[in-house]
Nucleic acid binder design. Structure first.
Length: 884
RNA sequence: AGGCACGUAGCUCAGGGGGAGAGCACUACCUUGACGCGGUAGGGGUCUGGGGUUCAAAUCCCCACGUGCCUACCA
């Protein structure tokens, strides 16, 4: 026997932990690698092990959980594959900060010990975000949890590297790359964030060899001049043509620089002369190659000037800049400086200004595999939703440059390449080679670099399923059904998964990519710790409960728009959770003696017929919304129905039956009420897993977990248009009487009479269902008349073709009532005028579709009739008030 | 510089060629046997501005203004 008594208010903290444990213990999150049921799979965007659950995670994982729970309730074999990302630079930074606190740095420990420390750290704190995801209710199959540095995943990484290398798609080369002098590593272009900052444009005179005149170059980074090996002008620039082939002198270092002509130079920028620093600028590097200007690196890997900087050696790059500017000024080479706003690259991990530097790194040649990735989307093998993101996806892939994948850090997948110290051979292999394949030397050293974190993330959809083994998991769950993510990692991650998936699995990694919003603060700023504007989801869950929080996220998740989270709105949905709780409480306390196994009775009464019919429509719409990732539509449909139809109307209409003497009616109603509540709970479960599970277990007819109950599907045969139309009349009449009561200040406890005039077709409905109106509008009597004398001293209203009177002999305030009628009339008049004008327009009649015209005629007639009736009521009132 | 969004009630936001919507906030009334985290009723918007297409525009197109984001090698 289930407990039908509920506490008065829902206390989330008490039930959330209980049910999460229950789900895990019952194995309800587990996917079957072999099953006949249709498979549905999602791989989680693996959060960084260093991470704390933030709003972005909360939204991302709530949406995934909604989809997974929805599909599971439909009977699908659902796999939500969880895991975490080793997050190379980010994690290394965190552990290094700890070492700093101990007064150490990683070099004190050495590579091996340092990596050990990182693993220890991960052992202690890496599970934190997993627990936070559980708190959120995430129904991942935790028995399959993966980590990007797991043995299996690491093996996949090595195999991919080796394969691409032998296919010629991975190569090693000297390039200008983006270098972070704080993290002391190369970065991919994508990992550099350009930010506009104020700076200076320095105009510097490079004199002719005899010390006279010279050419004026312009730069924002004067310290790089120490690495200049030429000065370039545009070949068609008349001003400088005579100097091409001659030389100028580099100030401070007194190096002779050739003046060369190159089309890259913009004649209109600055002086039209460009200093060429091949080792510290990507374009200068290219110019240098075209004109055989040697690159000279003037900085070391920490941004400190090296011996090539001569007297400036040992200075930090910005110290050096100041010193150089001062020296130039002193020696008369600084022509002028001006303020200049420009965009400068910053490290996406530590925000340090990056230094473009010539360096030898590993690259993936991506043009060819990018092409396949575009084709897959173009051909519809993968859909990107909302569609507008497709354009970004294509734009990026079309302009893609080779991907720099080597990082000079210690935490990550070591590059599987060995160098022979004797003959220089490069050996790329899955396992450490015993000897050089060319000279048989065993004097081999492994490349000290590790791979970009995103290299392993790119394999996530198949590496987590066991690749390169041919596993039943891969067979069943690849390609995955949908990838749910925010657009900020569309390039970092989604595009690269497409490339790797297509290349190694010969199939797309996911059928759909659903791109959701970014969560911003109330001012529309991206939430970040440095801005101090973060709202901590864990605090929110403490304060409002997880269900209210999740529902809010879903309600905000409209396609194609960012979310500005407002705490008030979460509060609003906490009220909704409480409303559901209390609707259930009411239902349960009226289910005493209900037959748990009874079949659903054929509904007889209007309220039941209407509620059942409306439910079918809600089922259809909610299913449709979830199928198409319209989470907010689904949420608001359920909200509106539950609160404003089920609670506001149905529960009220059902009370007299529940409290009445008729056992048969009561028993039927109990069954239908139970069905209604059960339906609402099942609709809500994907959004609000905890409260629905708790309530589910109180329902007399529930079995097991709501997680595996059927998600409601519409049954067309239950839709009852007639009931809905009749119910509309009941609702409108009730509202009209309540309006009169409210506006006339009739005490809520006081009962009044009402008289309704109108055609038989309508009054018969009012007659048949008058008991509902009497009850809901607190009437002592409801009389019906086809025609005849209207009551004299009465407040009145018009509802469709019905005229409605509330006699108020002795209490009616004539002025107030006539004002009320006047207000109604003045609302109607402009609407009627607009309709009239429309119907007078011949072109409208000719060109608009017939049904639109017919609808407009109907509307006009309805409005005119209503206005006419209201005016008569007003006239009558005025006359009576004068007589009285 | 280009591209993409967005500008709807005081606030946060849905909607999207033919009746302006929700939540919160606001006003009045209410200890009606689920809920005051409640109920009933109510006030509030030339849908940023200007053009255009259309019988019809908040909705489609163009321009302007504003906001946000993304991409880019004028040093």
């Amino acid at each position: 026997m289930k407990n039908l008594m509920l506490p008065k208010a829902y206390e989330p903290a008490e039930v959330e932990e209980k049910w999460y444990r229950f789900w895990e213990e019952q194995g309800l999150f587990r996917a079957e690698e072999t099953s006949d049921a249709s498979a549905y799979s999602i791989v989680i965007p693996p959060p960084n092990v260093t991470g704390d659950l933030h709003m972005g995670h909360a939204l991302n994982n709530t949406l995934q959980d909604i989809l997974c729970r929805y599909r599971r309730m439909q009977g699908d074999n659902v796999l939500w594959m969880p895991g975490t990302d080793h997050a190379g630079i980010a994690t290394q930074n965190v552990v290094e900060r700890r070492l700093t606190e101990e007064g150490l740095d990683r070099h004190d420990l050495g590579r091996e010990k340092f990596i050990e420390r990182v693993w220890q750290w991960r052992e202690l704190y890496g599970g934190k975000i997993i627990n936070q995801l559980k708190r959120l209710g995430a129904s991942c199959d935790w028995s399959r949890e993966r980590f990007t540095m797991d043995e299996g995943l690491s093996k996949a990484v090595r195999l991919v590297f080796v394969t691409l290398y032998h296919e010629g798609l991975i190569y090693r080369g000297q390039r200008i790359i983006s270098w972070c002098p704080r993290c002391i590593t190369a970065l991919a272009n994508l990992e550099v964030e350009a930010e506009e900052i104020p700076g200076q444009l320095y105009h510097i005179r490079y004199p002719f060899p005899d010390g006279s005149g010279g050419l004026v170059v312009v730069t924002t980074r004067p310290e790089t001049m120490l690495g200049d090996t030429g000065v370039a002008v545009h070949p068609e620039d008349e001003r400088y043509r005579e100097f091409v082939g001659k030389t100028v002198m580099l100030p401070l270092l007194n190096r002779e620089l050739p003046v060369i002509a190159d089309e890259y130079v913009e004649m209109n920028f600055g002086s039209g002369t460009l200093k060429v620093t091949p080792a510290h600028d990507p374009h200068d590097f290219e110019i240098g190659q075209r004109h055989e200007l040697p690159p000279i690196k003037v900085m070391d890997d920490q941004g400190v000037m090296n011996k090539e900087a001569g007297p400036y050696m040992g200075l930090g790059r910005y110290e050096c800049r100041e010193k150089i500017v001062a020296d130039l000024r002193e020696q008369g080479f600084l022509v002028k400086t001006e303020d200049y706003q420009h965009r400068v690259g910053h490290c996406y991990r530590c925000k340090t200004i990056i230094e473009p530097t010539l360096s030898e790194q590993w690259f993936v040649s991506v043009k060819q595999i990018a092409e396949a990735s575009m084709a897959a989307v173009r051909e519809g093998k993968t859909r990107i939703i909302p569609e507008m993101w497709e354009k970004n996806y294509f734009d990026w892939l079309e302009n893609i440059e080779d991907w720099c994948i080597s990082r000079q850090i210690w935490w990550g997948h070591r590059i599987p390449a060995w160098y022979c110290k004797d003959c220089g051979e490069v050996i790329v292999a899955l396992e450490e080679p015993q000897e050089c394949s060319r000279c048989n030397s065993n004097n081999l050293v492994q490349d000290s670099d590790v791979l970009d974190t995103w290299f392993s993330s790119a394999l996530w959809p198949f590496s987590t399923l066991g690749w390169p083994e041919k596993t039943p998991e891969l067979e069943t769950f690849y390609p995955t059904s949908v990838l749910v993510t925010a657009f900020d990692i569309l390039f970092f991650w989604v595009a690269r998964m497409m490339m790797m998936g297509l290349h190694f699995m010969k199939d797309v990694p996911f059928r759909d990519v659903y791109i959701h919003a970014l969560v911003r603060d109330a001012e529309g700023m991206k939430m970040s710790k440095s801005k101090g504007n973060v709202i901590d989801p864990l605090i929110i869950m403490d304060r409002y409960g997880t269900d209210a929080f999740r529902f809010t996220l879903a309600a905000f998740a409209a396609q194609g728009r960012d979310i500005r989270l407002s705490e008030e709105r979460i509060g609003g949905y906490r009220h909704f959770v409480n409303k559901i709780w209390n609707a259930s409480r009411f239902t349960l306390m009226n289910l005493e003696g209900v037959m748990a196994a009874a079949p659903l009775p054929e509904p007889q009464r209007l309220a039941d017929r209407w509620m059942l019919s409306r439910l079918q429509e809600i089922f259809a719409k909610v299913n449709e919304a979830l199928e198409s990732y319209h989470f907010n539509d689904a949420a608001s449909l359920i909200y509106q129905f539950t609160w404003h139809e089920f609670c506001d109307w149905y529960l009220e209409m059902v009370k007299p039956v529940l409290y009445g003497e008729n056992d048969k009616e009561r028993e039927e109603t109990q069954q239908l009420l139970l069905y209604g509540l059960s339906s609402v709970l099942r609709l809500l479960h994907p959004f609000m897993p905890y409260v629905t599970e708790e309530l589910w277990h109180h329902l007399p007819n529930s079995q097991g977990s709501i997680m595996v109950a059927d998600f409601p599907k519409p049954n067309e045969s239950i839709i009852d248009r007639e009931a809905e139309e009749q119910m509309a009349v009941v609702m409108e009449v009730t509202t009209a009487i309540r309006n009169i009561r409210g506006e006339m200040n009739i005490a809520p406890a006081a009962q009044v009479d009402a008289v309704v005039f109108g055609p038989d077709s309508l009054t018969s409905t009012v007659q048949a269902y008058g008991h509902y109106i009497e009850d809901l509008a607190r009437l002592s009597s409801l009389k019906l008349q086809r025609d005849g004398k209207r009551p004299k001293v009465a407040a009145s209203a018009v509802v469709g073709e019905l005229e409605l009177f509330v006699p108020l002999e002795g209490v009616l305030d004539f002025r107030e009532e006539s004002q009320r009628l006047q207000k109604e009339i003045s609302k109607l008049e402009p609407e009627l005028a607009r309709s009239k004008k429309k119907l007078a327009n011949q072109e409208f009649l000719d060109r608009a579709p017939d049904e639109v015209v017919a609808k407009e005629r109907e509307k006009f007639d309805r409005l005119a009739d209503k206005l006419n009736k209201l005016q008569k009521q007003l006239e009558r009132l005025t006359k009576i008030s004068k007589e009285g």
